[in-house]
Nucleic acid binder design. Sequence first.
DNA 1: GTTGCAGTTGCAATGAGTTGCACAATAACA
DNA 2: TGTTATTGTGCAACTCATTGCAACTGCAAC
Lengths: 152, 152
Amino acid sequence: MSCTITLQQKGYRLTPQRMMVLDIIHDSKGHISAEEIHQRVRQRYPFVNISTVYRTLNLLKKLHLISETDMGEGYVRYELLERGRHHHLVCRRCGQSFAFEHESLKPLQARLLKEYGFAADLDHFAIFGLCQRCRPAEGKAGAREESQRGDD
Amino acid sequence: MSCTITLQQKGYRLTPQRMMVLDIIHDSKGHISAEEIHQRVRQRYPFVNISTVYRTLNLLKKLHLISETDMGEGYVRYELLERGRHHHLVCRRCGQSFAFEHESLKPLQARLLKEYGFAADLDHFAIFGLCQRCRPAEGKAGAREESQRGDD
DNA sequence: GTTGCAGTTGCAATGAGTTGCACAATAACA
DNA sequence: TGTTATTGTGCAACTCATTGCAACTGCAAC
Ligand SMILES: [Mn+2]
Ligand SMILES: [Mn+2]
Ligand SMILES: [Zn+2]
Ligand SMILES: [Zn+2]
C-alpha cells in the first residue's frame, strides 16, 4: 500500500505497531475510532499501548494520509484519505450524517486562495446543522420543549 | 444585554453563576477559554465550579449566543456571536490566525441548502491550512527537515 | 563488534471536558 | 404560607487524548 512507502520515504520507521495500525485502517470500511483501532491491534499483539496508536494516528494525519474528524460523538474518527475526497453534513437534531462531494467546497477553496493567499486543508470536514427532515421541526419548537437528545 | 433576556425568555434561570460567565465573555475582547473564564469568575466568587462554567458555555452554545472553536491550541475558545459573524484561517505552520468575513461562506451555505436541503450552522469556523507567507516554504521542504513546531 | 545517536515505544501522570448523583435554589401551585 | 416539581450547582469520578521520561530499536561510524 502506498502509505507505507510514503512513511519510509519521509524518513519515518515502519515499525510493527505502525504497520498494524495502517493495516486496520485499510481494512476498515468507513470512519474508525482510536479505541477500535487499539482493540483490533491488541487482538494481534496485546502489548501495544494506546498512546502509540494515538501517536501513529497523529503522524499519519500530519502526512495527510488520514483525516481526523469530530462527528459529534464525544471522540474523533479517522479515515483513509486515498479513498476519494468527500465531507459530511451532520444533523445536530437527529444525529444522522450525509456525505457530500468535495466539489461543493472547491469554490470556497479557490476563493480563500485568491482573496487571502491561504491554501486551506480541506481534507475531510464535518459540517453541523439541520437536515432536511429536521429543519421544519426546529423552527416551530420553542427550543425548550421536546428536545430529542438529553442535552445540557 | 440581550443574552440575559434570551436566556430567560427560553425558560432558563439567570443564576449568579450564569451572569458572571456572561459578564466575563462580554468584557473579554476576543476569544476566551473556559479556564480563563473560570479564573475570572473565581476572582469574584471563589466557589464556582469549572463544570458549571462548562455547562453554561454549552447552554449558550446551544442557543447560538456564543461560538465554540478549536483554534488548534489543545483547548477550545469561546466568543460572543452578537459581535458580527466572521471566521478564521489558521496557519498550521506559523500558527497565525487571520479573520475573514462570513460573506466568503455564504455561497457554500446556499449550495448546501439548495443541493441537500441542509441548513448549516456556520457560526464561527477555524479553517486550517498554510498562510501566504508559509505556503512557498512548505512546498520546498522535504516535510521532515526544519519543522517549526515540536510535532509528532 | 561496540559505540553513538536519532527515532520510537510503554508507562504513568496529566489535561480538557463530561457525567452521575446528592443537595440547593427557584418556580408553580394551592 | 407551605408543599411539591423542576432546574441548577458542586463534587468526585470518569473519558478521551496528550506528554515527560526512561528504556529500547535500528542503523551508521568508528
Ligand atoms: Mn468520511
Ligand atoms: Mn472570532
Ligand atoms: Zn436531522
Ligand atoms: Zn503561516
